[in-house]
């Protein structure tokens, strides 16, 4: 069974793997490792390929990755603190007060406030005016009848003024 796997790897397959994954056979796909080692043991061409891959690995390793500076780490941690702070604000912020129907209708901008005040005054004036007119004209209660009687008497006095003038004339 092992021999079948070993013979399954051709020198072309070996070259392909060496080119893709480099000289460390431990890093190749697991199923390729044993056949590759078996081929390597008996093939000078495979050894040459692996040496070539090792050279390329060594050249690549010349470029070492940079270490993060303290300044970068500080910026990253400051970002984390900012995000954590925002999350805290979201958790502790009070629920928004539900607006009344007037605000929903007209909005909450200051420009509508004088208009609303004017409208309220007009409405109040209309209501008050209507009530006074009704209280004067409607003969619904005794009090109202008495008021009308007083007004009639006043007009009667004006009507009698001619008599007074006449009596003065007589004098």
């Amino acid at each position: 069974m092992v021999m079948d796997m070993i013979t399954a790897m051709t020198i072309e397959d070996f070259e392909e793997r060496a080119m893709a994954y480099g000289a460390k056979i431990d890093g190749w796909p697991e199923e390729d490792q044993a056949p590759a080692r078996a081929l390597l043991a008996g093939s000078a061409a495979a050894r040459t390929m692996l040496e070539e891959a090792a050279s390329l690995d060594a050249m690549l390793d010349l470029w070492e990755g940079p270490q993060p500076s303290n300044a970068l780490l500080s910026r990253v941690l400051a970002d984390a603190a900012t995000v954590a702070g925002e999350a805290q604000v979201e958790l502790t912020a009070p629920a928004p007060v539900r607006d009344g129907w007037l605000v929903r209708l007209f909005g909450n901008t200051p420009i509508f406030r004088p208009g609303l005040a004017l409208a309220a005054c007009l409405a109040l004036g209309f209501v008050m005016g209507t009530n006074i007119e009704e209280s004067v004209l409607a003969p619904a209660s005794n009090g109202t009848v008495q008021e009308i009687g007083v007004i009639d008497f006043a007009f009667a006095m004006e009507d009698d003024s001619d008599l007074l003038l006449g009596s003065e004339a007589l004098l």
């Binding site: 470029w63 990755g65 940079p66 993060p68 990253v76 941690l77 984390a80 954590a84």
Partner: peptide, 27 residues
Amino acid sequence: RFADGDQSAARLLSERHLGRVLALATR
């Protein structure tokens, strides 16, 4: 832990991953 408000977790995650991410971006 970070999501729960523990910011020491942010430092540990940064120490663990920032170098590799920076190397990837640099290359």
